[in-house]
């Protein structure tokens, strides 16, 4: 089968999305490392690099619109462009959460250490793994994996509730750590939101593959 003009454009679009995905993944990872290792320089770098991610988002937006206008894709091609256009801002928002975690890290790093008491790194690990699998499932167009990842979000929610209980208890027991603990609570919330966003990505994967909108449906 000969290559269509649109095939080349779609390939570039896919590459750009995966690059954005990889960069976002790294941002979440580094933001958490800046927190765990109390590395404020690293936190500042994550915040600074968020600009690159914003620029990537704009570039993909522009290319998606251009393909829609000039190539007038249909069927799978159309679903592909729509999925990319909808996944892109989700990734950008995940990166925003990474930057927010880095900002929290800058504050927390100046406070007495509270971190070892809570399972935040475990939450971050689950979130990172979910994001990675979601992007892989997008590339390989695997609806089954996408649906598994959606279910995995429950683990993050559960971890969040646990972290929440621990941190509030910590604040009551030891008011001197309140500031640090409160910011850790924000971090936990950011991670929990990231899990939700990864879920959204997986829902778009399912749309791409099965042309079905599973958003806002309780069963997948």
């Amino acid at each position: 089968m000969e290559t269509r003009i649109i095939d080349r454009k779609l390939d570039v679009l896919r590459d750009k999305l995966l690059l954005l995905g990889g960069t976002t993944e790294k941002a979440v990872y580094l933001a958490m490392r800046s927190l765990v290792e109390r590395d404020s320089d690293l936190a500042r770098k994550v915040i600074e690099d968020d600009k690159i991610i914003n620029a990537m988002e704009l570039e993909i937006d522009q290319m998606s619109v251009e393909i829609l206008a000039l190539q007038q894709p249909a069927a799978h091609d159309l679903r592909f462009v729509i999925s990319v256009a909808k996944i892109t801002p989700i990734l950008e928002r995940i990166a925003d959460h990474a930057a927010n975690i880095a900002e929290a890290s800058l504050i927390i790093n100046n406070e007495p250490e509270v971190m070892p008491n809570v399972e935040l790194p475990r939450m971050a690990e689950i979130a990172g793994e979910m994001l990675q699998r979601a992007l892989d499932a997008f590339t390989s167009e695997d609806a089954k994996v996408s649906k598994e990842v959606i279910k995995r979000d429950k683990a993050i929610d559960k971890a969040y509730n646990k972290v929440f209980d621990k941190l509030t208890k910590l604040m009551i027991d030891n008011p001197s750590v309140t500031n640090g603990a409160a910011h850790l609570l924000f971090v936990a919330k950011h991670l929990e939101r990231i899990g939700d966003y990864v879920k959204d990505i997986c829902e778009m994967n399912v749309y791409l593959i099965e042309a079905a909108f599973i958003k806002h449906k309780s069963k997948v």
């Binding site: 089968m1 269509r4 649109i6 249909a74 069927a75 159309l78 679903r79 042309a211």
Partner: peptide, 18 residues
Amino acid sequence: MFTNPDDELTEDYITGRF
């Protein structure tokens, strides 16, 4: 038909594969 055709031939035709 234009978002998710049932038949692969239709998909190939409307997306300009042949």
